[in-house]
Amino acid sequence: MPTNTEHQQTQPVIEFQDVEKRYGNKTVLNDLSFKIERGERVTLIGPSGSGKTTVLRLVMTLEELTGGYVFIDGKPLAYEQRGGKRLPVSKRDQKQLRTRIGMVFQHFNLFPNMTVIENMIEAPVHVLGKSKAEATARAHELLAQVGLPDKADAHPSSLSGGQQQRVAIARALAMDPEILLLDEVTSALDPEVVGDVLQILRDVAATTNVTMLIVTHEMSFARDVSHRVMMLDGGKIIESDDPETIFTKPNNERTQQFLSAVLGND
């Protein structure tokens, strides 16, 4: 069981402040505020439609922030307060912040027109400005780490779902992100390969200090890997505690109901 003692910094690496997200007149997130410390691994749980994925997508700037503020390392990500007004931050500042964030998607989203290794070095070379040799060496290292050392020149379409997701994890790590967002990364996989993918993520958690924000339905994984679990319901955090407490003696009645439903089905 990981402990959460090494976070002495006062500056949270991710901070949501009164965040509101609406699609048309449908409110998905409402008045949401939380902080995540550097190196912390936090899992969001909750029924479908509770807005878990939306939280990740807001951090990755894949969604427009309709209300409130998101800070990365204390810097505003999408909107900032200037002269009493809520104004969008400059594209350049936003891009700068975004390079520190990586994301692994439910459906992998590998580029089908590139080989595995091309997928992995594309952004490090052209976005971070690494040399091709350096990026390639690092990519091979990461491929070995995810157990696919011989797939460098394979085409994504020739890989199984589990293999594609492992490449996607390696691709995200190749950018050396400070924050890694994992969006239901095992939901689209066949049951027999889920364990392999989760094991790789456990290894990443154990060997690096990357901050992780996780959305998953794999409760045992959430329990093993996170420092903290946040329960979302109706666009609000209704309970936030260490996994031990959440999974064994949750305070909130909705959390109890949700967990007994999910774990009962397991």
Binding site: I101, H107, N109, F111, P112, M114, E122, V127, M175, L181
Partner: peptide, 25 residues
């Protein structure tokens, strides 16, 4: 849409993502 999102997650610039990811597809 997921391909466009992947290019955002990798912080690719507009020219870069169009030339290398979107246009080839």
């Amino acid at each position: 849409q997921s391909q466009w999102e992947a290019t955002i997650a990798l912080s690719m610039s507009w020219q870069h993502k169009i030339r290398r990811v979107i246009f080839p597809q």
